[in-house]
Design a binder for these strands. Structure first.
Lengths: 341, 341
DNA sequence: CTGTTAGCGCATTCAG
DNA sequence: CTGAATGCGCTAACAG
C-alpha cells in the first residue's frame, strides 16, 4: 500500500506551483511548453492520479450520476444499466448504482446514500417508492425516471406505452383466430402491470371478444409465478387457445408448465410475453413478445440527464414498443387446450 | 436546486461548534443530551446529510470498494454483483461498479477511474487484463479477484474448480452410456474456458473414452455462438449422442439448433451446460448443468475484502461447483444423432 | 464534555 | 503566464 501521490508533490518535484499542475491537468489555462513537459513527465513517473473526492469538493460537482435500480441480477434492468453506462460514456460523468429491491424503505435509503455522495443527477428505474419522495430529491438534483410516471415531474419520465404494446399482442392473436385468450398479469403494485392488464382487457373488447375473469390470473413477474399461474389455468378446465403473459419471465415459467403437460407450442396453445429479454430469442420455440428497446431507453435516460445538466429542458415522448412475432404463436387450434386429462 | 446544507450551518443554527456536530454524527465522543437533541432537531429540520466526499477527504477513506465487472447486462456477473452488494451491506462500505467489457484497454481505464475515486479496496470479476496490471493496483489497495487466478496474488483469488465441475458432467454422461460426446468450448482467452476444455478431455480419457477432434468446437460463450457451433457439429455428420457446452448460454443456443432440426432432448441427444444460470431451470427441458453459487461467490468476495480491510489475512480455497441433474440428459440412444438426414 | 485549530487534495480567485 | 492565498465540508488532535 504505497502512499498515494498528491498534486502538491508533483508540483514540488517539477519545481512549479500546484496551480500550474492543476491548470495542466484541466487545460484551464496556457502553460509554457517546457513546464508542461516537465510536469507531465513527473506525473507519469510518480503515476499520479488526481483525487476525485478532492476535485468534487473543490468545484462543487462530483461528476457522478446516481442510478437507483431494483435488482442488479435482473436481466431487464441490467440491460438498461448497460445503456446508461453507454450513454454516459465520454461525458465526464460516471454512474453510481444502488439497488432498492422493490422495497420502498430500501429505495429511500438508496436515495439518501446517493444524495450523501452528492451525485449531480439521478436516474430512477421503476421502483415502488412514493412519488413524493422522488419529488423531494428532484428538488435538489435533476431527476429522470424510467418506466414509471412520477406525478409532478412530467417531461422527466421516460415512459413506455404499455397499452400500445399489449394491444399489438391481442390483435395478433385475434387475427390468428384465437377467441379464448388467457392472461397472466404482474404484481399490480407496479404501474406497468396494471397498464398492461387494463390494455389487455380493453383490446379484447375492441376486438369483439369478452373478458373472461376465469382466464385472468396474477403473478409477480417471476418465472415461478408464471409457472404456477399457468398450472392453475390449465387445471381449472376453462378452455383457452392462447396465453398472454405480462412479461417474458412469466412466459418462461408458463412454457415449462405447458411442457410438463405435453402441450405443444404453438400447435396446441399460443404463448406470448412482454419485454423481449435477450433469452426470449432462444426459448423453444422462440417467443413472440413485445420488444422494448431497454438498452436504448437507458441511453436515452443518460442523454436526457446530460442535457438537463447542461441546462437544457429536453422534451420526452412515450416510447412505443413493437411486437416481435416469432414462433410461439400460431393459428388457433379447433379444439382448445384445457390441460384436463 | 436548493443550496445544500453543511455541517457548519447546522452547528451555527444549533449554537454549537462544528466538532460537536461531527461527534454526534459519528458517535466519536459523548455529548450532553440537551446539545445532542438540539443538534439532531436542526439536522432533521434542515434535512442535513453529510457530504461523503468531504468525509472521505478528511479521514483518508472513501468507504467504497471498487468492483470491476465485465458486462452489467450479464446474467452471470449480475448475480455476483448482487452477492457483493449483499455482502457489503451493513458494513459502511459501498460498491462502485464499472465495466470492462472484456476489453483489456477498457478494463485498464475502469481501474484507473476506480483508483481516482480512491476506492478503499477492489474486487475484480474475470476480465482479460494482464496480471501485471492487477498486481500494480493490488500494491495500492486490497484486491480480490473472482473467477480468475492472478499470478503473484494467491490467497486473493476466489477460484472455481472448473476441472471438477466438467468432470462430473462427463462421468454423468458416461454413466448413462454415452460414448460419443461432443463439446462446445468458450473463448480460450478466458482462463476458465481452457480449464473446462482441458478438464473435459482429461475426464474423457479417465472414463476410457477417446477425444475426437471432430467433435470439438469453439464458441465465445454467447447463445449465438452455441447455436452456430451445434449447427456445424450436426452438419458435419460425425455421430454423437451427447453435447457438452462450456456454459449455459451456449447450451441455450445449441438447444435452439436442435429444436430446429427436430432433435429431441434428451431422447435423441443429451445436452449439458455450465454455470446454472437462473433461467436454466426453465428451459424445455430444464437443463442439466454445473451449479456455481455465483451469488455466494460474490458475498464471499465482499466478506474477504472486508476482512482484508480489517487487517486480517483470510485464507481462500477453491470452490467446487456441483452437477445439477435435470431433464436434458438421459440414456444414450442406440442410433446416434448426426443431424444429417 | 466542548470549542479552536489544522489540515485532507484540489481549483480558483487575485496579484504579479 | 504563474505563484500565493483561500476555501470546499468535514474530522481529528489539542487544549481547555
Amino acid at each position: 500500500m504505497s502512499a498515494t501521490v498528491t498534486l502538491m508533490q508533483v508540483a514540488r518535484e517539477a519545481g512549479v506551483s500546484p496551480s500550474t499542475v492543476s491548470r495542466i491537468l484541466n487545460g484551464t489555462a496556457n502553460v509554457t511548453p517546457d513546464k508542461r513537459e516537465r510536469v507531465e513527465a513527473v506525473i507519469h513517473r510518480l503515476n499520479f492520479t488526481p483525487n476525485v473526492q478532492a476535485q468534487a469538493l473543490a468545484n462543487g460537482r462530483s461528476f457522478s450520476v446516481g442510478v437507483l435500480t431494483q435488482k442488479l441480477s435482473s436481466a431487464f434492468y441490467g440491460e438498461t444499466l448497460a445503456g446508461i453506462e453507454q450513454g454516459l460514456e465520454g461525458s465526464a460523468y460516471h454512474p453510481l448504482v444502488v439497488s432498492g429491491h422493490w422495497r420502498a424503505k430500501q429505495e429511500q435509503q438508496a436515495l439518501e446514500l446517493l444524495m450523501r455522495r452528492r451525485v449531480d443527477a439521478l436516474i430512477v428505474l421503476g421502483g415502488v417508492i412514493e412519488d413524493a419522495a422522488l419529488q423531494r430529491v428532484a428538488a435538489q438534483v435533476p431527476l429522470v425516471a424510467v418506466g414509471r410516471a412520477v406525478s409532478g415531474l412530467p417531461e422527466r419520465c421516460v415512459l413506455i406505452d404499455n397499452h400500445a404494446g399489449i394491444r399489438q399482442v391481442v390483435h395478433h392473436l385475434a387475427g390468428l383466430g384465437h377467441r379464448d385468450i388467457a392472461y397472466i398479469g404482474g404484481d399490480e403494485a407496479q404501474q406497468d402491470a396494471v397498464e398492461r392488464r387494463v390494455g389487455f382487457e380493453a383490446t379484447l373488447q375492441e376486438a369483439g371478444l369478452s373478458v373472461n375473469p376465469h382466464l385472468m390470473r396474477c403473478g409477480d413477474y417471476t418465472e415461478a409465478s408464471g409457472e404456477r399461474a399457468a398450472e392453475e389455468l390449465l387445471r381449472s378446465g376453462v378452455p383457452f387457445t392462447a396465453l398472454v403473459c405480462a412479461n417474458d419471465q412469466m412466459a418462461f415459467g408458463a412454457r415449462l408448465s405447458l411442457y410438463r403437460r405435453g402441450l405443444r407450442v404453438p400447435e396446441d396453445l399460443s404463448l406470448t410475453g412482454f419485454d423481449d429479454l435477450f433469452s426470449s430469442r432462444y426459448t423453444t420455440p422462440p417467443l413472440t413478445t413485445v420488444h422494448q428497446a431497454v438498452n436504448e431507453l437507458g441511453q436515452l435516460a443518460a442523454e436526457t440527464v446530460l442535457r438537463l445538466l447542461a441546462g437544457e429542458q429536453p422534451h420526452m415522448s412515450p416510447y412505443v414498443p413493437q411486437l416481435v412475432i416469432r414462433e410461439s404463436t400460431g393459428p388457433a387450434p379447433h379444439s382448445p387446450a384445457t390441460g384436463g386429462s
